[in-house]
Design a protein around this nucleic acid. Structure first.
Lengths: 107, 107
DNA sequence: TTATATTTGTCGAAAATCACCAAGTTAAAA
DNA sequence: TTTTAACTTGGTGATTTTCGACAAATATAA
């Protein structure tokens, strides 16, 4: 099971970038990126777009890696039942199905 | 698809409590609980235990409702692919399987 | 050693959270 | 209608959290 940090590190090294170089492209310093790669701190969601561009990958792939890790960590940390993810998926699909009322949802 | 707020409201009224009464039991005022029930603000996770006790239900049930809603909202808000939840479930199970190393995970 | 890359801890400003309060609205009864 | 209770909404200030930045320490390599 690859962590988000390792996923980023793997793609970074595959592209021949060091931490300083990649960090600069997403508005961090090398220390910040190091922490992200080692799971010591969370990356801001607003940097995912830049990160995808810098690594030349689909932003959807990064989002999937990023949020699955975030959700799993919360689930573990707060001792959620496993079934939370099935219900979450249903709710997410429900939100999409009613997105015409998006403005009233206040999400 | 019942929202978390409606779930709480339904249980509250079933128990014959008004907002002021239930709110007091979980350290809120009626205004705060109203916002929670209407999805206008998030309930603090640390209040789930008290809420379960006040409503006489299993805390796992509340956690499932609470976090599934939170995850689904994030997924919708940030336009995650649906497959994020399958991966999240795998990761959560993986975390549990290595929980002997819990201290090193920094979750 | 010297240079480069990475890791780690700390700090302060900025942002977010949250309980509280007060005013406004609704609804039901009198 | 008036009164009363229940609920909603907006705002405020204090507290907490976040996050980029910096610096020192550690590692890696030449």
């Amino acid at each position: 099971m690859e962590s988000f940090g390792n996923y980023i590190r793997r793609l970074r090294t595959e592209k021949g970038l060091n931490q300083t170089e990649l960090a600069a492209k997403i508005g961090l310093d090398s220390g910040g990126l190091s922490k992200v790669e080692n799971g010591k701190k969370e990356l801001k969601e607003s940097k995912l777009q830049l990160l995808a561009k810098a690594l030349k990958i689909d932003v959807a792939d990064i989002k999937k890696q990023y949020f699955s890790e975030k959700f799993a960590e919360d689930c573990f940390k707060y001792k959620c039942p496993d079934t939370v993810f099935q219900l979450a998926e249903e709710k997410a699909k429900y939100y999409k199905s009613v997105k015409t009322k998006q403005a009233s949802l206040n999400l």
